[in-house]
């Protein structure tokens, strides 16, 4: 086998492995029960799957400029994917539709009241003004 054939085979293996990770994320997105576990599954093609596909692409293209571009893509993806995951997780946490029984540890549980109070206070400040007259109920 020549060097070209070996590199092409390695590129094919990397591409298939990356596509398999994407498929695993697709299946997990359909089957997993709540937002946090779906985020866990979503990180697989975003980081490892994408890096495998880019490695396969670099093994196949094999020129300096293209490899530099692919390294740039990988670096930008590694820098931006955690930002999006952090923001989504922060927005998802205090809601009721995440499965608390599936969490192994919940480090914010002791402060949940404060989180909810902050969130509710920020949401209800404009609307809490317009409810007078509720105390005019006569005692039975």
């Amino acid at each position: 086998m020549t060097v070209d054939a070996v590199l092409d085979t390695a590129a094919g293996v990397c591409l298939i492995a990356g596509a398999l990770l994407s498929l695993a994320a697709g299946i997990a997105l359909v089957r997993f029960p709540d937002v946090l576990s779906r985020m866990h599954a979503a990180a697989k093609p975003q980081v490892l799957g994408l890096l495998l596909v880019l490695l396969g692409c670099a093994l196949r293209l094999r020129t300096g400029v293209d490899i530099t571009t692919l390294v740039l893509v990988g670096m930008f993806q590694l820098a931006t994917a955690p930002v999006a995951a952090h923001m989504v997780g922060r927005a998802a946490y205090p809601h009721d539709d995440i499965r608390r029984d599936l969490l192994l540890t919940d480090e914010l549980a002791g402060r949940l009241d404060r989180v909810r109070a902050n969130r509710a206070g920020a949401a209800e400040t404009p609307s809490s003004v317009g409810a007078p007259g509720r105390d005019a109920q006569p005692p039975a």
Binding site: A19, G26, A42
Partner: peptide
């Protein structure tokens, strides 16, 4: 938020597809 997460995955799939086309 489920839709936002799934849209990110769809973007990753699209990136993988474009890279595979370039490699092919």
């Amino acid at each position: 938020l489920d839709r936002a997460v799934a849209t990110d995955v769809l973007l990753a799939v699209a990136v993988a597809a474009i890279a595979t086309e370039a490699a092919y």
